[in-house]
Computed example of a mutant assay.
Amino acid sequence: MTLQRVYLVAGELSGDILGAGLMRELRARHPTVEFRGMGGPRMEAQGLESRFPLETLSVMGLVEVLKHLPELLRVRRTLREEALAWQPDIMIGIDAPDFNIGLEKQLREAGLKTAHYVSPSVWAWRQGRVKKIAKAVDLMLTLLPFEADFYHRHQVPVSFVGHPLADELPLENDRDGARQALGLAPDTPVLALLPGSRGNEIRFMGATFLDAVTLLCLRHPSLQVVIPAATAQRHAELSQLLAKYPALAQQITLLEGQAREAMVASDAVLLTSGTAALEAMLCHRGMLVAYKMAPATHWLAKRLVKTQWISLPNLIAQESVVPELIQHAATPEAIAEQIGQLFSDAEMRHALEARFAAMHANLQRSASERAAQAITALVAGEPLEATADGA
């Protein structure tokens, strides 16, 4: 069976990357396929007709979502109506579970096949959501093996496809080459600082990170700091913030994108949680995860989240490989202390790099290809076991 129409909805940069890889592999199998829905520049480059800008769904935190709820409901209603009018072979929601799973449920009830790419953290909190997911999707595509195990236990059709970033990033990388490409000195400590892809993350963490950098520069006068801005808007916000730190002007390089190059060039990475932590792991770099959120959001999260960790490297390893500083613990002093240890202890850095390289190898599975294979089988009505591997 040849796919003719695929409707996709992604809501942030990581989803745009995943969606673009999936679209590329689907087109390789179905050259005439059309794509509509919502996504970012990478998905648009693969042929997506996007109805709304990517950042429409990029609202961080439980409390913040409530403020934007009327607009989010309007967007979901518009997407539902357009999908039903277009009648695609399948609708695929990519991440953004609170938005997409509701949309998937509505479309599935209306007779469309649906899939969800990237499992929400049902294994960590609100496990009752798996019942809604079972009603919303014909297939769940997971990036990590422990997620697939969870869905198997709850009898939800699932395919563990691996993580596209693990396929994309090489098992060996060139730190010296990355430094040369970014114009960094070869023999001085380098910190990659990734404050997040959302505006609220800059607002909550930006000043804290730069205060920590100020302390680190006192201990390491030759420190070089590279800050990759995720978008043009984040670049503008970071430029305004950096203007308040003139003493750091000679030691900080603000980049437009190039997060991967910055991490490969670094000795250590300072970041908020999310996909960036996984990418740092796949670049085999020691890191510190520090995160703050609105007080009300943090209060709710403490009572709802059951998992011991928030960063993907720790969740994959099921142990504390990466230090995490959350909310009040994420002070400039504590951050500077943890990063300073990474700079000072070469043996620790090398051990972490070797551990992350091994974890990287275990996640390489040609994820986009496997996802496209599973979607094709689902639409064709073939048994999931013929293409999926949930082990």
Rank of each mutant, 00 (worst) to 15 (best):
G128C: 09
L238K: 00
Y151M: 02
L165E: 01
P246T: 03
L144M: 06
L218R: 15
L184M: 09
L184C: 09
E147S: 06
C217T: 10
L141F: 08
Q127E: 09
R129F: 09
R179D: 07
D149Q: 13
A134R: 15
L216K: 14
D211W: 07
E237M: 04
V161D: 06
V225I: 14
L182M: 13
Q251V: 07
V158M: 08
G206F: 06
E172W: 11
E168D: 08
I202M: 04
G183N: 04
V130S: 01
I252E: 07
K131C: 07
F150D: 02
M205V: 11
L143I: 13
D187N: 14
A236Y: 08
L242Q: 02
T188A: 15
P221N: 13
F204V: 09
Y245C: 11
P186L: 10
V122Q: 02
V118R: 00
L144D: 00
R219I: 08
A236I: 10
L191S: 08
L218I: 13
W125L: 08
P170E: 15
A207R: 15
F160L: 12
Q180R: 15
R175N: 04
Q127H: 13
V156Q: 02
G162R: 12
Q180H: 14
L171H: 10
K135E: 09
L141A: 01
I227C: 05
L171K: 15
V122W: 13
L223K: 09
D167E: 12
V118E: 07
K131W: 14
L215F: 10
N200T: 15
A229S: 01
L141M: 06
D149K: 14
C217I: 08
S159E: 03
P145E: 05
G183C: 06
G199I: 07
L184F: 10
S239I: 04
L193M: 13
A236S: 03
A148R: 06
E237Q: 03
A243I: 08
S159N: 11
V161Y: 07
L215V: 09
V137Y: 01
I133G: 00
P186T: 07
F150M: 04
